[in-house]
Nucleic acid binder design. Sequence first.
DNA 1: GCGATCAGCGGCACG
DNA 2: CGTGCCGTTGATCGC
Lengths: 261, 261
Amino acid sequence: MLSLEDAERTVREATHGRRLCLVVGNCRVNYSGRAASKLSEGDRLLVIKGDGTFLVHQGKGMTAINYQGPGSTVSTKLEDGALIIESHGKKKPNVPQEKIEVRFSHVHFAQAFDLRDDSKLSVTGTEEELAKLLMQEPDRIEPGLQPLKQESYRRHGDIDILARDKEGRLVVVEVKRRTAELAAVTQLRRYVEELAKRKNEQQVRGILAAPGISESAKRMLEEWGYEFAKVGYEAHEHEHAKIKRVERKQKSLSEYGLEEE
Amino acid sequence: MLSLEDAERTVREATHGRRLCLVVGNCRVNYSGRAASKLSEGDRLLVIKGDGTFLVHQGKGMTAINYQGPGSTVSTKLEDGALIIESHGKKKPNVPQEKIEVRFSHVHFAQAFDLRDDSKLSVTGTEEELAKLLMQEPDRIEPGLQPLKQESYRRHGDIDILARDKEGRLVVVEVKRRTAELAAVTQLRRYVEELAKRKNEQQVRGILAAPGISESAKRMLEEWGYEFAKVGYEAHEHEHAKIKRVERKQKSLSEYGLEEE
DNA sequence: GCGATCAGCGGCACG
DNA sequence: CGTGCCGTTGATCGC
């Protein structure tokens, strides 16, 4: 157990020094901004990061019960025998000012920490990588498929992969890293229709490339004359190594200034 | 600074007692499962909750850099002068087993806490509430509009509000609590088309009800013959009180077993 | 800054 | 249990 005065000083100094601050105690929480919320008494963990990030966690559940992003400012005060910690969100255009008030009646623990950390997370297995892989091996989608945007495959017209099939027809490929659902079909449909209009081509095919597809998505897909290509990595353990190989290959190619093999 | 042995005991006992455990120290993090990630050396905060929730936070940024949901299991070991804390995700069908390995070289802090907390967050200002409000005051969408699904407004065919206009035409209303974008238009379109086919009505109108709409979404909306209704709460401070009044009214009505006014 | 899209999305409700 | 969809979604990237 900690006196509220001590806790307040700890939080104030940590905030001032832009250090991580952890507070555990009994509190109520109020939030208002884009929405509003109330949480009555209970023990929680409060995490305040050096960049202003503000997280209130209950003892269960993965997501913070209340939160505020980087750039928020913290203020503290003692009032009516309670320690009040407020976070005021960074002002954003077209969004109401956000505010969280945490009112501690008891603080079990409060401490500041210096976190030295220059590392950044590197992730593999994203949709972007799957698209890259498919650009390298378009036969996985359909034999004879020829991708068009060899370099800078990314976000040209929001189409994941644009290609021509053996008959020379334009093909829009929408890639999903997990089971495709209805939204993926409507997305594909929009791209195909927009492209057909823009290029003035009547025959534009649409292929949804994903490791799986839900039943209703499949129905809607076929109803609209589009196709499904199962392209998921089969063995999850090996896939990442494979993707890495592809990436390394690309890197070495670009080092030599080559556009394609 | 803490000996790794002490830290390991703290984590083990906290896990066993299903208590919250906080660990701060220098570590590397590896994740594999649906995707895979690596994070090299740095100081981080590890949060392990009583329900198995596992969160690795860097000193900046709002989101946990690695995470695992409730139901995960924790194991610890000392190896090569490091404290290794692993989280194994709950097995789910059709998803590869997930695993996080946090390898601490130094632990600055490790402590367990008991969080007694029976409260649940109550939120106001959601889309569901906005839809309720519009059911109560459909004129906000369009004069003369008559909502059809008075009770059990929810998830009938995923349509937010189904209504008839003054001319008796079916109207599908898709409600968004914030600025509507392209996805909202395609969503509306899908509902309208499915309903038209299902009910065999040729004239089904579609209205997108939201506080705002992006330019391209508006273009696409009008291109498809649908309409936009600006319905956002004007004053953010008052809106919630207003919604609350509406809810209370509904509650008291249902207490008397009434279906409508 | 707006907007469109991905995310290891998470969470929830419903069939 | 799959699946759809909201979320104070957050994070990122291109315009």
